[in-house]
Design a binder for these strands. Structure first.
Lengths: 227, 227
DNA sequence: ACCTGAACACCGTTCAAGT
DNA sequence: ACCTGAACACCGTTCAAGT
């Protein structure tokens, strides 16, 4: 048993290039930890374990645990596949909105990192550039473009945050679960909630996202027409 | 020095009612820890220290650390002062939106708890009831009311999350800071970002929130007219 | 250039022992 | 009913010692 561990009781760097640690490998390993146990399961030791390496080795490639989580968030942001522009405002913003959702759904447990952390890297700027470019093309001023960008992003982040934190337990068509939530809401004693209970007890992430995107696009288009 | 500590080396409950631990006192103490050091500074031991009590005593009033953070979030939600209804859709929703922002600003470091955690308590339902009641009065169906509620909440949460995480370092009128951020953005090599740099480098939380609220109200009112 | 042993000051939580 | 000592299995991080 003991002979299988990489640690041979010696000290210092292992004799051959058997570990091949890299920032990218670390990020991937962290994503695996997150996918399996959520962000709360991330620890330097847990990530090291996945890589067969001591936790302290990570410090050579990443700025502590916080830097590690930043790196994961940046990786996900970089994974956004920005669509080619067509020239139509609604089409283009809609495409970006859905592209933004993709990495969040691929790693739902990690999504809050992207949505919550303040990132200043270049990876974070690319999607911003894409939205601004579309808005500028539609003829709005730099100042207005920034404000509209921020409202749009706020809406998307809020919607995604709900979707990923509602999670599979809420989202699925689990008849028993829906019925139970509905019953709780009906018993709340709050009239409007009781009346809306059947709809409050359900949640279709895709449909809600679409609704939010279209409403935001409506508002945005209306604002640009009078501007 | 040692004589001042409450621990006398003995075991068991202290002789007199000197600790007076309660769920409420614990929540307040936790808020103090958060205000001073952020959510990351919260630990059972740190909260116990504020109260002059052993960390393990908290377990008699709160379901572990997670339950503690839930309790804080619920406390903040309960602190929302819901306005009286006037009967005008825009006026009423606007008032609720600003009421929602208040506790977040009072404890900016704690805001993410409210915005991020999934709460199922009754405290969390009151604001929902308020919004639904206004929407129902305006004549929209239960189903549409739920969707509009969710978009509205998503927008507010997204906007607040940005505001509190942008923090005082970003928000203030720190001329040097603004200039520096602007320079970074201009050097990014992304054309639309460079062009909008002066506006991207600045952030006025109150103004942005107002903009987001008005845009959301516009969209909402437009949707209700044709429904 | 990069990995680890030793070490430090922390964590959350259980449970039995006390009052 | 409620508080704590003892105890356990964890944390993040520094730094010098190794290759």
């Amino acid at each position: 048993m003991e002979s299988m561990t990489t640690s041979t009781g010696r000290r210092g760097r292992p004799p051959r290039g058997e570990s091949q640690l890299s920032r990218d490998a670390i990020v991937t390993a962290t994503l695996r930890v997150i996918d399996e146990g959520g962000v709360g399961a991330v620890s330097m030791r847990a990530v090291g374990r996945v890589l067969g390496v001591d936790a302290k080795s990570l410090y050579n490639h990443v700025e502590g645990k916080d830097g590690l989580l930043d790196a994961v968030a940046e990786h996900l942001l970089g994974a956004i596949a920005l669509p080619a522009r067509t020239g139509d405002l609604r089409t283009d913003l809609r495409s970006i909105a859905y592209a933004f959702r993709e990495p969040a759904l691929a790693h739902p447990e990690a999504a809050s990192l992207v949505l919550t952390r303040q990132l200043s890297s270049l990876a974070a700027l690319e999607p911003v550039e894409a939205v601004l470019a579309v808005l500028r093309d539609a003829g709005c001023s730099a100042e207005e473009a920034v404000h509209l960008l921020r409202v749009l992003v706020a809406t998307l982040i809020g919607a995604l945050l709900r979707e990923v934190s509602a999670g599979p337990t809420f989202g699925t068509i689990d008849v028993a679960g829906i019925a139970q939530r509905r019953a709780v809401l009906e018993r709340s004693g709050l009239p409007s909630i009781a009346a809306a209970a059947p709809h409050l007890a359900q949640f279709d992430g895709a449909a809600e996202y679409e609704f939010a995107v279209e409403l935001a696009l409506d508002a945005l288009a209306a604002r640009l027409d009078i501007a």
